[in-house]
Each structure stands twice: as C-alpha cells, then as structure tokens.
Design a protein around this nucleic acid. Sequence first.
DNA 1: CATTTTAATCAGGTCCCCCTGACTAAAATT
DNA 2: AATTTTAGTCAGGGGGACCTGATTAAAATG
Lengths: 172, 172
Amino acid sequence: MPDVSKQKKAAGKLIEFDMVHHTADEVARRHHSNKTKQPLRFQGQGKILLTLSQSDGLSQKDLATRLNLSVQSTAEFVNKLVKKGLVTKEKSQTDRRKTVIRLTTLGEQTASTETAQVPEFLTPLTDTELDQLTTILTKINETLYHEIDEASPAQTGKFREVVADRLRDWFL
Amino acid sequence: MPDVSKQKKAAGKLIEFDMVHHTADEVARRHHSNKTKQPLRFQGQGKILLTLSQSDGLSQKDLATRLNLSVQSTAEFVNKLVKKGLVTKEKSQTDRRKTVIRLTTLGEQTASTETAQVPEFLTPLTDTELDQLTTILTKINETLYHEIDEASPAQTGKFREVVADRLRDWFL
DNA sequence: CATTTTAATCAGGTCCCCCTGACTAAAATT
DNA sequence: AATTTTAGTCAGGGGGACCTGATTAAAATG
C-alpha cells in the first residue's frame, strides 16, 4: 500500500518544480534578453504546429476536428502562425473550399525536438537518477494517457500519436 | 561524466509529461464539467495570492516590487482577486497613500496547499519511486533556484521564501 | 437545377498576463 | 510653504487561448 506522506512529498516537489521552473524561464528570458524559445505547449498555436509536424498539409477543418477546437479558433491560430512565418495557407486544388496548411522550414524547426536542448537543470543528475526519472515519468505519462482516454476516448489516439511522433527522435 | 542520451531521454519524457499533463487537465475540466481548481501557477493572480499567504498585509507597491511586476499589473491582479473574494483592500491608517492587501479566509484556503490534493497520476508509483522522484526534484529545484539567483540576485531570496513557505506543510 | 451541406471568413466577445503613459493624493524634503 | 517623491488609479495597448453567430463560396445531392 502506498505511503500517503511520500505521495504528498512528491506532489509538493512537483508543484515547487512547476513554479520554480516557470520563474526561472521568465527570469532567463528577461535578463539574458535572448529569444529563449519557450517550450511548445499543446495548446493554441502550439497545438497546430505540433499536429502539422506529425501530418502536414491538413485543412483547417481537419485540424479543428482532431484538436477539438472550433474552426474559428483554428483559423485564428493558423493566421497567427502564418504571420510568424511558421506555416503557409493555400487553396486546395482538388476541393477549392479547402485550405491546405503546411509547415514552412522555420515551422518544422520550431516544432522539431532537434531545436530543443537538454535543459540545464538536468545536467547535475547522475545517470542513475536520469534513468529513474525516465522510468517514473513513463509511468506517470501512461497514467495520464489513460485518464485522457477515459474522458475523451475518440480523440486520444491522435493526441498520443502526435506526442509520440514528436518525441521519437529523442529515443533513437 | 553524464550520459547525454540519458539526459535526452529524460528531457523528452519531461516534455511529454508537460503536454500530456496539460491536456489531461483540460480534458478533465471539459468533460467532467467539474470546477477542478487548476493548480496555482506562480504568475498573475496566483503570484499575488501565494505571496500574501506567506506574508499577509502587504501594500500593492510591496507586492509589485517583490514580484517584479509593474504597479499597474499588480493593481489589476489585486482587483480581480477582490472581485473573486480572495483578498481585501483597505487604506493603511499609518500612511494613507498605501493600500493594505489581505487574504480573506477563502483566499487563504485557495492559497493553501491543503486545497491541493495528491494528483491521481502519482498513485500508481511505488514508495521507492516516490522517494526517488522527491530526491530528483529536490536536486532539480535546487539548480533552478541557483539559476534564478544568478540572473536576478535581488529577488530570489523572497521568491524562495514564498515557495518554501507555501510547501512547508507537506513536509511535516 | 435547386437545395443542402461543407469549409472558411468576418465580427465581436470573454478572460488571462503584462506593459507604458498620464494624473491625483498624500507624505517626505528642502 | 513649496517642491519632490511615493502609492495608486484610469486609460489604453499588445499578446494569447477560446467561443458563438452570421455570411459567402464551392461542392455534393436530391
């Protein structure tokens, strides 16, 4: 049986990590004045980008459907990404109602894990600790996928694919 | 010497955790339609709340200074919290320029870790894994505090106090 | 061919985080 | 007493994540 106090300890550390991590990012961005790419969240524009990196050339409707967004929100995010030069929009030749969204080279780079470095806060950890962390996170993520599954069965498969695909490079 | 591939693995898992965690929260909020209190982030209104829970009765200027916010932003967040009934504003009697901000009972509850339960995704972990996770996160957080320190020495002490204080209950 | 369905767009809204500029009221200084 | 500094407020702005409603253009279907 699980030790509740151990769970609480870990939960507390996790909350602390969240806060400290966020603040460290913020401070780094401010003081070093470098355009530190904040990690892509699976939300808003990031959602679009990540999904396209897994299957490029979708229509806005496709994106909206598989991301559980309204078409209007999707259009908004896509337009913002166009302005940033991360994706392109072009009318489909086969069905001229549709707009095909494609990643630009810059968009690919942004979405790709290749541009993501190992965060510095992992470097002090020993190999053993890294292994432990990986094992634990794998277990936790499993649990979370399961939760998502239960609440929203239709959509999980795709979400998981997207995430997995994005992270595959790291495990080669 | 650290194994870079192990670092990458862990980093990937961490990114995955971030995305999956976020999505799970979102899905839970949407589908269960329960007012799942999203965890307090150290930003915006949450920043204010957390800081007050560590030292109540600060002025807006005090808050702005120690949180690295403009006074206007601070005022905005405070006003929103007042509307939500989480804090109160009253003119200082000793210096009538100042406004003293205090947590209400509801505010205290919201800021207190008591409202945060152990997330479900920790329950499948064994005691050993929980210990490992705690140890690892402690190390990571240490590193991050140090980073914040380097970039913004003036402010860290206070930030750390706030965080530590908020989490103290968990370790008793 | 006429109607319906589909993909998108425009318009407008809600709420969040965060900033600068302009201005008032009260305390501190000269 | 006159000036300056300090704490706050109002006004307005830039981004971001979302949404509903109304309208247009093109494809599918009766």
